[in-house]
């Protein structure tokens, strides 16, 4: 999966799960301050990302350091590179 595909699918998660307009989905956007997600939304986000990419990320500590949309792209890319185990 290419970087562009990962960005596209991650953005799809935000559009489908949170109905956030495509125009707002820029890598520098802070998911809390700019996009308005809270801790419970993060749980929904994790589930949606797991389903979209077929990876397990619920107990991954790196998720705590995520602040921007760009951080999520990088995180998913690293998971894919590590060949994370399929969850479904």
């Amino acid at each position: 999966m290419t970087e562009q595909e990962i960005i596209k699918l991650t953005n799809q998660v935000f559009e489908e799960s949170f109905e956030i307009e495509k125009e707002k989905l820029k890598p520098e956007m802070n998911i809390f301050q700019d996009l308005g997600l809270d801790s419970l939304d993060i749980v929904d986000l994790v589930v949606a990302l797991q389903n979209k990419f077929g990876v397990k990320i619920r107990n991954d500590d790196r998720i705590k350091n995520i602040r921007t949309l760009g951080d999520i792209y990088k995180f998913v890319l690293s998971l894919k590179a590590e060949g994370a185990s399929p969850s479904l």
């Binding site: 799960s17 949170f18 109905e19 929904d44």
Partner: peptide
């Protein structure tokens, strides 16, 4: 609505 949509509508 999703919780996210509802909270942002109210906001």
């Amino acid at each position: 609505f999703t919780p996210y949509k509802l909270k942002n509508m109210v906001r």
